[in-house]
């Protein structure tokens, strides 16, 4: 079944359809939220819970014909943004990096490299970080990222471009995004 068919069933209260969507997306969204939360797993789990509770509470607002994945990532992004605004994430050290004990490898094969990428991402402005993480790490197209963050595709491309430029500078000789 497609995500959208599952979502239709879930809107009618089908718990199994929710389970299927949860199994499909919870690990992916968790990884995304970890990156957005600077590698803080506990905080990422709080955000993940807020995300899926929101999915349950707002399922009646999911438009038929819309795609589920960008909607889900929009919810996760909103939760992360608000937490960031309220100062619950990114407890950076004085030199502006993520504390060592909080930076955990997420997806790249080399844990050391992952940590460096994580630190570099944490130093980017939130808007650029969102665009890069969603596009480069979560595999969303620019059109989907635009849906997630509520901007035009070209605006997202500009943000991503600036973010990649900044990342190149931060990770010079270590990693080519």
């Amino acid at each position: 079944m497609t995500d959208e068919e599952l979502m239709d069933a879930f809107r009618e209260g089908d718990a199994q359809a929710f389970d299927a969507l949860f199994s499909r997306y919870a690990p992916l969204v968790r990884s995304y939220l970890r990156r957005m939360a600077g590698g803080d797993s506990a905080h990422a789990d709080d955000l993940l819970q807020a995300t899926f509770l929101s999915v349950v509470r707002a399922r009646g607002r999911f438009s038929r014909g819309a795609r589920f994945k960008p909607w889900l990532y929009a919810i996760a992004t909103n939760a992360a943004r608000d937490a960031h605004r309220r100062g619950k994430s990114e407890a950076l050290t004085d030199d502006g990096t993520v504390p060592e004990q909080e930076a955990e490898p997420v997806a790249l094969k080399d844990p050391g490299l992952e940590r460096q990428v994580q630190k570099a991402l944490a130093q980017l402005p939130a808007a650029q970080r969102e665009a890069i993480v969603l596009h480069r790490f979560e595999g969303l197209s620019f059109a989907e990222v635009a849906q997630v963050v509520g901007l035009t595709e070209s605006a997202v491309k500009v943000r991503a471009h600036r973010g990649y430029e900044a990342l190149r500078g931060l990770l010079k000789g270590v990693w080519e995004p």
């Binding site: 929710f18 819970q49 899926f52 509770l53 349950v56 009646g60």
Partner: peptide
């Protein structure tokens, strides 16, 4: 997290 979401679904089985 899954259990918390399902409990929420049980509390409000009808979508608004």
């Amino acid at each position: 997290i899954r259990r918390a979401a399902l409990a929420e679904l049980e509390r409000a089985p009808k979508a608004r």
